[in-house]
Amino acid sequence: MRKQTTIDLSISLVLVLAFVALPHFYSNLTILFMMAMYMVLSQGVNLLYGLTGYMPFGYVGFFGAGAYGFSIALQHLHFPIVLALIFGVLFTSLVGVILSPLLRLSGAYFAIGNLATSQVIYGIVANSHLQGITGGGDGVDISQYFNQTASYYVMLAVLLVVMVGIIWVKRSSFGLSLQAMRDDSVSVAMSGVNVVRNRMLVWLASAAIAGLCGAIYAWFISFFYPSSVFDVSIGIFAIVFMLFGGQGTIFGPVIGTIILYGIYNVIGVSTPQYFQLAYGVLIVILVMFLPNGVLSLFKRGRRAHGRVLESRPNF
């Protein structure tokens, strides 16, 4: 187990180091930033859905809340960047606490309820009556803090921390309890696990990850409207990348993001019609033949290999 953890940590470190090196070979920092950001966001979804079974279709609500929490801290509280990022996370966590009754729902009801609440947050932020605080529909201009390079490296640091966190959760008894809760929460509760507390912790951790991503994204672009940071497609992308790679796995969201976001940038931008068709077909194939994601292919291969060894005649 310890050896496995060391390998996982090493791969995570190599991944982040690759991102550190890439700007020296490729100067479009936005693509690299977005790829790292989606990896973190997918891990946030992975934490919630992969380990507890709650599908957050409105995940972008936390992302947008983080972006606005960060901006408010900069513009109105005049915090330095680091404190503003922390404020963004705390603000998102507060939103998470307020929305925690959603956890009483499950399945499709939770997914729809979560989507609806994200739109409610969007509506509140964009409302002209809050213009003095959020900027309302006029958007946010924090361009005096614009620093793409610094925000990129902060995002990489967050990616590393989140990867380490996911590895720890997967290996810990806490993570096992989450997976058990996903399968049968009643039995787990009867075994003495505090189901409500654990669910709440994961919910808040997942919200904080999205909030931190939103805050760094706001810093990265520094000029945005509510529609830019509450764009539902941001949350949907994170979910699809996680599902494609493999839910509940450590590297599934990373693989999913590299493949799908890469494809999106290569062909989705130039020929969106073909891309949407290709994306649609890919997702249908995924759901039908690989419901556990691309990484499950390797597990299948490993099991098949094991069966071959077992059935081999013992001479």
Binding site: V14, I31, F251, T271, L295, G301
Partner: peptide
């Protein structure tokens, strides 16, 4: 297992480099 992880890592790294290199060249 470790072999598979290394394989996945290598494929991902190559894929990442290839995709980044291809981004927007069309």
């Amino acid at each position: 297992d470790m072999k598979n992880k290394v394989l996945v890592s290598v494929v991902s790294a190559v894929g990442l480099a290839a995709l980044v290199a291809g981004c927007g060249t069309v």
